[in-house]
C-alpha cells in the first residue's frame, strides 16, 4: 500500500518538475503570439523563423563551445583538488573547501562587477578565454562537492592494497580512485555544462560582441519584446536536443548506474 502511495506521489512530483518544460513545448506550436491556454491553434511558424534566424544559431554554437571548454577546465583543475582535499585530514581542508565553494555564495552579479573592471584592466574583456575562466570558477564548486561526496564511498582499503602491491600513486589513482569517483565527475560535468550553458548574469557582463551566448540573446529579446514566441520555439528546440543527448548518454554510457 505504502509503495503505491509513494508511486502516485512520485509521478505527481515528476509532473511538477517537468511542467514548465511541457508548457514550453506546447506553446512552441501555439499560433497565438502570446502565451495562451488553451492554445489558439497549431503552427510551425516559429520553428520556421528559428531556422531562418542565423543569430540564434550562432549564439547556440558559442554557448556550446563555451560550456564544453569551461567544463573541461573545471574538471581538470577540480578533480585533483577534490582528491587532495579528501586526503588532507586537517583543519586547512575546511578552509580550502570554503574557498572553492565560495562562488556558490557570492552572487554572480556582484562578482561580475568586479570581474568586468578586472578584465578590462587585463584586456580580457569580451575574450573567449575570459568567459571560459569565469564559467570554470562557477563550475568548480560543483566538481569539488560532488567528487568529494563520491570519494566518501571510495573503498580506501582497495587503494591501500594497490599501493602495497607496488602500484605508483598515479597508477593507483587511475585504476582505483578514478573509477570510484566517476559518478561524481559525470554529475558535476553535467551540472557544470548546464550552469555554463544557461548562465545569463556573468555572460551579459563580460561577453563581448563576438561571443553572445544563447541565454544572453534570449534575455535580451525577453527584456525588449516580452515573451517572444521565437524564443519559446528556440527554447523548445534546445530542450529537445538536450533531451536527446541526455537519453543517448544514458543509453550508450549508462552513467546513472554509477550513482
Amino acid at each position: 500500500m505504502w509503495k503505491h502511495v509513494n508511486r502516485v506521489l512520485s509521478w505527481l512530483i515528476l509532473l511538477f518538475m517537468l511542467a514548465p518544460i511541457i508548457i514550453i513545448f506546447l506553446n512552441s506550436f501555439n499560433s497565438s503570439r502570446f502565451f495562451s491556454f488553451p492554445p489558439d491553434g497549431f503552427t510551425l511558424e516559429w520553428y520556421r523563423r528559428f531556422l531562418e534566424n542565423n543569430e540564434y544559431r550562432k549564439a547556440i554554437g558559442i554557448s556550446t563551445e563555451l560550456a564544453f571548454s569551461a567544463v573541461i577546465l573545471a574538471l581538470s583543475v577540480g578533480i585533483p583538488s577534490a582528491y587532495a582535499l579528501f586526503k588532507w585530514d586537517s583543519s586547512k581542508r575546511s578552509i580550502l573547501q570554503a574557498v572553492f565553494l565560495s562562488p556558490l555564495m557570492l552572487p554572480g552579479i556582484v562578482w561580475a562587477i568586479g570581474l568586468i573592471q578586472y578584465y578590462s584592466m587585463m584586456g580580457l574583456l569580451g575574450s573567449f578565454i575570459g568567459l571560459v575562466c569565469a564559467h570554470a570558477i562557477i563550475i568548480i564548486p560543483y566538481v569539488i562537492r560532488l567528487v568529494t561526496a563520491s570519494l566518501c564511498y571510495l573503498d580506501e582499503d582497495t587503494e591501500h592494497a594497490a599501493r602495497t602491491l607496488g602500484a605508483t600513486p598515479v597508477k593507483t589513482f587511475f585504476s582505483v580512485t578514478l573509477p570510484a569517483i566517476k559518478p561524481g565527475i559525470i554529475i558535476s560535468g553535467i551540472f557544470g555544462f548546464m550552469i555554463s550553458f544557461t548562465d545569463v548574469v556573468i555572460a551579459t557582463f563580460i561577453a563581448g560582441s563576438k561571443y553572445i551566448t544563447y541565454p544572453v540573446r534570449m534575455y535580451v529579446e525577453l527584456r525588449t519584446e516580452g515573451l517572444d514566441p521565437l524564443a519559446v520555439a528556440v527554447s523548445a528546440a534546445i530542450m529537445f536536443v538536450i533531451i536527446i543527448i541526455a537519453l543517448l548518454a544514458e543509453k550508450s554510457l549508462s552513467w546513472s548506474k554509477y550513482l
Binding site: 515528476l14 518538475m17 517537468l18 491556454f37 551540472f191 525577453l222 530542450m239 541526455a246
Partner: peptide, 22 residues
Amino acid sequence: MTISILPMIGGAMIQTMGWFAM
C-alpha cells in the same frame, strides 16, 4: 534520472518562461 535532471539542464531562463505561462 535523466528526465528528472531536465529542469537543471534547461536552465533558469526556460523554467522561468514556463512558470510564467502557467
